[in-house]
Simulated assay, not measured.
Amino acid sequence: MPYCTTCGAEYRSGSKFCGECGASTGAAPGHPAAANQDRSLESVLWEGKAAGISDRLKGLVGLNTTLYTLTSQRIMVKTGLIGKNIEEIELLRVNDFSVGQSIAERMLGIGTLTVFSDDASSPELLFRRIRKVQEVKDILRTAVRNEKLANNISYREQI
């Protein structure tokens, strides 16, 4: 928890004023607390659907129900027409990723992005048949690096 720079009392993250002395907690630009608040805002970096031939036909009639979303903090895969299933992985938990493309997929400009993480519920998350898969991988790689740097997490190889 953060501490007030005026009286030294501990206050809750996100508070605008100290509970002890009433001083501002630093919402001014350039203050470390303001930087933390800016980092807490989540923005969508990429969003897409499966783009194979059958997926495009499903999209014409509104049945392409899988939505992939990459934000500045997490990855989400939403599936389902009537009932919804949402899988999420925090970017801090991502370990690695790979891209796979068959010959037919290369001709269509699509591929599968596999995200490997230490998340217990979904250690492998697949983005199947997405357009410009290499560009999406690069966006994901940059987002993971930025999130880990912002949270002072470094890579370590285990022997």
Rank of each mutant, 00 (worst) to 15 (best):
R131D: 15
R128P: 01
N85M: 09
E87T: 10
P123C: 05
D118V: 03
Q73D: 10
R128W: 05
P123F: 08
P2A: 05
I53D: 04
M107A: 09
Y155I: 09
I110S: 00
I130Y: 06
A9S: 15
N85C: 07
R74E: 12
Q134T: 15
F97G: 00
R56W: 07
N152Q: 13
S121M: 13
L41V: 14
G26A: 13
D119V: 02
K16I: 04
G109P: 02
N151Q: 13
V61R: 05
R93I: 00
Q73T: 12
A33Y: 13
P2M: 04
T5K: 14
V61P: 03
G26I: 05
D138K: 06
E105Q: 14
K132P: 00
I75D: 00
L70I: 04
V133K: 02
T114E: 12
V115D: 01
G8T: 05
I103Q: 08
L126P: 01
R141H: 10
E124I: 02
L63G: 06
C4H: 02
K49Y: 10
G14D: 06
G52K: 03
L57A: 10
V136H: 04
V115R: 06
T112W: 06
E105F: 07
R128Y: 09
G26Y: 09
N151I: 05
A27T: 11
Q134K: 14
L108F: 08
L149S: 13
S102E: 02
L140A: 00
G52Y: 01
S13M: 11
V133R: 04
